[in-house]
């Protein structure tokens, strides 16, 4: 009988303290996420120092819970995979140092995982990946199009030149006076709206897969100022719908174009903004029309979690990738191929 391989994943790159046990890179045995949203809400966003303090409070509890729920003891594990970067440096350091101490205490190999590789591999927990594939990564910190020709091979073909899509969502939510985190609120308002304001779309150069969202954010702010200066009031629903339409259009058109150009077998979406209903619908419809399979993980696997880190860690472990105890948290870590 084939032996099962269990990987412990740890993720603390932003405001979720998470740990998970994944079997054979594809099956979630446990996935614990302790979110700081309730504590960070009062500050209107993630305060890095608060995030780090909360991670220290939660880290061992969350790892213990992941092992207990999986009914796994450390000696059943093959390796410990942890988010090495990118992210908030003080936050990353908690996961990295906990992982190093855990690996040392239990004499296990340690694997440093790129957060975005993790988001991409969240899909492997739902469907086997088929190559070449195109991944659209959209979150509060990232907007990237990545082509993968095999496991562990990443070719970045486009990225944001200014704000990440999720960042634009949060800023627009603040302009509209919506509570933090604003992305899901804007999505909800947009879906309820029957009208939308026409905002610009930044297509950039004809052959570019890059993105830009700061102009759109400014357009929303200017629109609000103009209306208010004339003594009027904006309709948040119409603004949300217009903004969302603009973001979703650009993301969809560029994704479909890239999928065709690189002749991919599947398109996957990942990251917190991949939970956006408007985006999921638009991509599903557009790719269906082209006959290209499209997968997006359930919402709990789109937002930050440790199962995705364990899933990516498993592929790295299989390829012989190892880190040592000099691993550091790397806030600006570039996405590099391991195969």
């Amino acid at each position: 009988m084939k032996k099962d391989h269990y990987i412990l994943g740890i993720e603390t790159s932003c405001d979720e303290t998470a740990a998970s046990v994944v079997k054979n890179g594809t099956e979630i045995v446990s996935s614990i996420v302790s979110s700081q949203i309730q504590q960070q809400k009062q500050f209107g966003g993630v305060v890095p120092e608060i995030a780090s303090r909360l991670h220290v409070e939660q880290i061992t509890l969350v790892i213990e819970e992941a092992l207990r729920e999986a009914e796994i003891v450390p000696k059943d594990l093959e390796a410990v995979a942890v988010t090495e970067g990118p992210g908030l440096v003080g936050a990353l350091l908690i996961g990295v140092n906990a992982a190093k101490a855990f690996a040392f205490a239990n004499q296990l190999p340690l694997i440093g995982v790129h957060h975005i590789a993790g988001h991409v591999y969240a899909n492997q927990l739902m469907h086997p990946m088929e190559f070449p594939l195109l991944a659209l990564i959209v979150s509060g910190g990232h907007t990237e199009l990545v082509v993968m020709k095999s496991h562990g091979s990443f070719e970045l073909i486009g990225e944001t030149r200014d704000d990440a899509a999720g960042e634009a969502y949060d800023k627009v939510a603040r302009v509209l006076g919506l509570p933090y985190p604003g992305g899901p609120q804007v999505d909800r308002l947009a879906l309820e709206s029957e009208q939308s304001i026409d905002f610009p779309r930044a297509w950039l150069e004809a052959d570019s897969y890059d993105f830009s969202f700061s102009g759109l954010k400014s357009a929303v702010i200017n629109y609000k100022h103009n209306i208010e200066q004339k003594g009027g009031q904006i309709d948040p629903q119409h603004v949300a719908a217009g903004f969302q339409q603009s973001v979703v259009d650009v993301l969809t058109v560029k994704t479909v174009k890239a999928a065709k150009q690189f002749d991919v077998k599947q398109v996957i979406a990942a990251g917190g903004v991949a939970a956006n209903q408007g985006l999921r619908k638009s991509l599903t419809e557009a790719l269906q029309k082209e006959g290209i399979p499209f997968y997006v993980p359930p919402i709990a696997l789109c937002t930050d979690n440790a199962a995705m880190i364990a899933a990516a860690g498993y592929e790295m472990w299989k390829s012989g990738v190892r880190s040592d105890s000099t691993m550091n948290g790397r806030p600006g870590m570039p996405l590099k191929s391991w195969n």
Binding site: E49, V56, I63, L93, N97
Partner: peptide, 17 residues
């Protein structure tokens, strides 16, 4: 802050596991 957290994180992870 960061220095203290690194030592404490390592110590509590070792003690727990």
């Amino acid at each position: 802050y960061t220095g203290v957290r690194i030592g404490v994180t390592i110590a509590k992870t070792l003690a727990w596991t």
